[in-house]
Design a protein around this nucleic acid. Structure first.
Lengths: 265, 265
DNA sequence: TTTCCTCGTGAAAAAGCTGTGAACTCTCGC
DNA sequence: GCGAGAGTTCACAGCTTTTTCACGAGGAAA
């Protein structure tokens, strides 16, 4: 089980001795490590696409707690390990409650630090063992993850990367409602800021491209106040809707879909 | 304060002093804790649907490592925290590599143990929100949390988000009376202002929508001066009502069961 | 029975969400 | 440096959902 994929680690610490020793080990393990002597704006941490962050609170200055909280809040998927000198139980509890995943007391053996970083990262990693390969088909749509593209009867939709990721995520959860925050979190990699409309905008772009190539089908449903749900549905004519509700149509694969959903287009 | 969701914890330890103290804290936090003095077959752990396991390796005997590995392997979603006496770096590293999420050294402050258990569970939960409870069925009603919606024989009730949350909360506590304040606190996220009628209004909306799709059943019962209770009851004919009323349903205003059973927050 | 509260209702006002179109910012490749 | 394409942000309009009110019926206690 020891096939720990390379871990991308950032270290915020000015204890050069410790950092050097640590770096030697992480290198040997094939990890990627970047070191900083002081606080780094969370935005930059986001850009680094890290798996874990090891930080010594003492180099963060006065607002160490605030920084810790901010980072943990903005990067819920990042494994955060505090590695610092003497501390009280209350401090450790506070750090952990604020979002840290582990707290190591210096001096500590680098091997243990590595093991703990690995343990923290393992959780993240295990969560997505998605090795899906086969093309997904939904309605007239064919989603091919090997091409980062979707097709309708052979014609490409011309999706951009984000659009594709969004479509794939929705389709993977076919039938389930995904909340905006969850979508954003997984595709953008960090917490969605309040009021961010990116997801909506991409949904619109997706719908436009879907509509263009596959009019007559309805794929993405809005759930007011919650998020979106992917479920291919053939559009019956408007006229048909009234009477046909009961009769024809409804050749749907879904398990127990409702007829009277008020989900808007 | 963020998401103090109840955690289901199992403790394998024979240090009665520690266990007792710990139990007091977990209870206060609203967690569910079960304690064992020796190894438990992994199958049983699975059946307990735990969030976390706290184990003292010293009570596991010779095959402690094997047991640890086995448990971590069979329950990849379980947060495992080793809490044991003196140990060497090598032992800790081995435990963590084997799959443990954290390693605490005794003696340790119970508060820190709790914080670490919480941290581990928090990550686990975030990493794998997939395993959601299947649809809940009550009377003619089917509550599907993956859709944020409730159905009666396939037809959606058309619930809004708040309505759904309210229904789900009531249904989760089926049979128990929930006080308004508790309901408000959990769904709205902050304390209810004196005189606020929001809960009542939503109860009415829920009842309307339930009635529309599932007349003939009574789901939400009012407990005067206390709150509401969810319990599906078929409405017998009017004639029967008198007699039946006394039996199962609103027999008593039941002041006792209410407050102590509420999920505190 | 009288009186004080609590709850159910219906409706109107207030707040909040989502769909859109379009301006901006960034990155890249030329 | 320029221009095309991708991703972000903004401001609005049109709807939905929530909150808030005013009343009156339903219960509980004296």
């Amino acid at each position: 089980m020891n096939s720990p994929q390379a871990i991308r680690l950032a270290v915020i610490d000015d204890d050069s001795g410790f950092v050097t020793v640590l770096n030697k080990r992480t290198e040997a393990a094939g990890w990627q490590q970047r070191t900083f002597a002081g606080a780094i704006p969370p935005e930059e941490l986001i850009a680094m696409k890290l798996n874990a962050l090891l930080v010594d609170l003492s180099v963060l200055g006065d607002d160490a707690w605030g920084y810790l909280e901010q980072v943990c809040g903005m990067l819920p998927d990042l494994g955060v390990i505090v590695c610092t000198g003497r501390s009280t139980v209350a401090q450790r509890v506070r750090g952990l409650r604020l979002g840290a995943d582990d707290w190591i007391t210096k001096p500590c053996h680098p091997e243990e630090a590595l093991a703990r970083i690995e343990a923290v990262s393992r959780r993240r990693r295990r969560a997505r063992p998605r090795i899906e390969a086969g093309p997904v088909v939904a309605g007239e749509l064919e989603i091919r993850s090997d091409r980062f593209e979707a097709f309708v009867s052979g014609a490409s939709l011309g999706l951009t990367r984000r659009e594709f990721e969004l479509l794939q995520m929705l389709a993977d959860a076919r039938g389930k409602v995904l909340e905006r925050e969850a979508i954003y979190q997984r595709i953008w990699g960090y917490a969605m800021a309040h009021g961010d409309r990116s997801v909506d905008v991409f949904i619109r772009k997706l719908r436009q491209k879907l509509e263009k190539r596959s009019a007559g089908w309805h794929y993405i449903h809005t759930h007011f106040g919650v998020g979106y749900r992917f479920e291919p549905e053939p559009l019956a004519g408007v006229a048909v809707e009234q009477a046909a509700r009961v009769g024809p149509g409804d050749a749907r694969p879904a398990p127990s879909p409702a007829s009277s959903e008020l989900v808007a287009s």
